[in-house]
């Protein structure tokens, strides 16, 4: 079945979870470019206990790109920042019942978008100082 999507991928592609934006996001991650065919933008909302209370995405890309975006937002909701940092591209792919080899880079993009959003959150927190609630 090389090159074919799993049922889980198709399910997330058909009904992607958490599509949209978070206007007052705690962190935003942007990865990819249109030339390579995928762009992901991942938003996270983090509370003062460092728990990710909400995550949303916008993605330009193939079925796998949309499904991995959807899955990564599902995986990190409710997790702390420290836990979310452990979510790897393999975990995303695995949760989707696997990805075709040629599409594994989509899961890498999802991981990078997540790291980007967390980095952005950390940078903002640092800039605002230790007493700010962000």
């Amino acid at each position: 079945m090389e090159g074919q999507y799993s049922e889980k991928v198709m399910e997330h592609f058909k009904n992607p979870r958490n599509v949209g934006e978070i206007p007052d996001a705690s962190g935003v991650g942007n990865v990819g470019n249109p030339v390579c065919g995928d762009i992901m933008r991942l938003y996270i909302k983090v509370d003062d206990k460092e728990v990710i209370t909400d995550a949303k995405f916008k993605t330009f890309g193939c079925g796998a790109a949309i499904a991995t975006s959807s899955m990564v937002t599902e995986l990190i909701k409710g997790k702390t920042i420290q836990e979310a940092l452990k979510v790897s591209n393999h975990a995303v792919a695995e949760a989707l019942g696997g990805l075709p080899k040629i599409k594994m880079h989509c899961s890498v993009l999802a991981e990078q978008a997540l790291r980007g959003a967390i980095d952005d959150y950390m940078a903002k927190k640092k800039a605002q100082g230790p007493n700010s609630k962000g």
Binding site: P16, V19, P34, I39, R41, K58, T59, F60, I66
Partner: peptide, 8 residues
Amino acid sequence: REMSPLYD
């Protein structure tokens, strides 16, 4: 398109 960051 509503899902696309480019359209946005």
